[in-house]
Design a protein around this nucleic acid. Sequence first.
DNA 1: CGCTCTATTGATAAACCTCAAATACAGTGG
DNA 2: CCACTGTATTTGAGGTTTATCAATAGAGCG
Lengths: 226, 226
Amino acid sequence: MDTSLPKSDIFKGLTRDQLSGLVEKGRRIILKPKSVLFHQGDPAASCFLVNRGRLKLTKLNEQGREVIFRYIGAGELTAAITVLKRWAYPVTAESVEETVVVGWDKPTMIQAMHRYPDIAINLMGIILERIDDVQHRYLEVCTEHVDQRIARSLLRLMRRAGLKHPEGIQINLPLSRQNIADYSGTTLYTVSRTLSAWEKKGWILSGREQIVVTDPHALVQFSETG
Amino acid sequence: MDTSLPKSDIFKGLTRDQLSGLVEKGRRIILKPKSVLFHQGDPAASCFLVNRGRLKLTKLNEQGREVIFRYIGAGELTAAITVLKRWAYPVTAESVEETVVVGWDKPTMIQAMHRYPDIAINLMGIILERIDDVQHRYLEVCTEHVDQRIARSLLRLMRRAGLKHPEGIQINLPLSRQNIADYSGTTLYTVSRTLSAWEKKGWILSGREQIVVTDPHALVQFSETG
DNA sequence: CGCTCTATTGATAAACCTCAAATACAGTGG
DNA sequence: CCACTGTATTTGAGGTTTATCAATAGAGCG
């Protein structure tokens, strides 16, 4: 069995042996692209670590409109909150590409935290960062214009999933206009128009489900001043 | 000294004596209406419990536009996050009426958590509820129309600060149109127009900085369907 | 090559904001 | 009690932003 694990914040402080012991207790799941790991309100959802690939975390509102909270990649956790709460995690996780995760159920996770208190501390840190992140994005979506928000979305994705590319930095993720819209709180039409305009300005290059940011500085400038 | 403390989630599980010992270690602060307890990015901010009155938690964006995250009342905590993180809490807390808070610095709080592990567990629970709340509001602000969001804001405030009133439920809080706008992510003009319309429909009564919800059911209905 | 999914673009409408001006209200000091 | 002042609120007009709808083009795949 492949016991290699990516570096992850949650297990910082553990030795190699402790870590592989934990991994053995986990359930390894391989997801094809666009398959659902757990669904909004799924009571069985427990704690998952992404080993390879990437998950999209979303939420649907009553009318069925989707919002993307974040994309999480190798070494990142999701649904860790459920370990500490009895309610189901109100978020859906879906792979955007072939993805491998390791999942632990609540009892295992709680036992692990007792044995290695570092895990609990790390978990706390991760949750606090998430809260800060959502709060900041809440501020943005309340106060900023759509195009500013699109710019921020691209920059955020670029930082988390950026790859070197001859013309700039490529967002290494299958990313449709609809995805960007769901991530920015707008519609695919507005995204399309906005990206077209930026492409004319030379700030980005765009293709089918692909974006390359060619002038990050211009985007940053724009995202801050409008 | 007045050692009476409101029931608070954070100290659930502690005895009366343990609690009053803690209160004595805290610093009691009395705030006149509209005074700032701590400011966005203030490194000195530590953990505060509201004893009486109410605080408004806000954040300013780069252009100086304010967003209200939440109003917190007696028995509720704020800035608890700072206890566990080195960074400053990126939020401003301001009293909306005469307010009494008890504040503890980080070392005291950490010591207390060691002595009474219940506190750490309770704190965790509070933080998890907050994350869920912000995420849900993020979804709302991304997907819903302004008037739906205003309806949700009134309902939320009603549930947290509602008082019986001959005509319905009064929101017991000085609440200007601007406040509602900052809480809903819109402008005071739109709030004014919307409330006028609802008053004509008999859903609410409104006065200067005062709202009475006379038909909560209609508001709920509206907030869900548009 | 035809099928499906994604993206673009124009036209139109709706939602919402901004500005300006008028009005209502609460508190203060005479 | 009343005028005065500062703030809160309302409302209209006009404009901008953004969503919606519809039609077309393009890309990838078997």
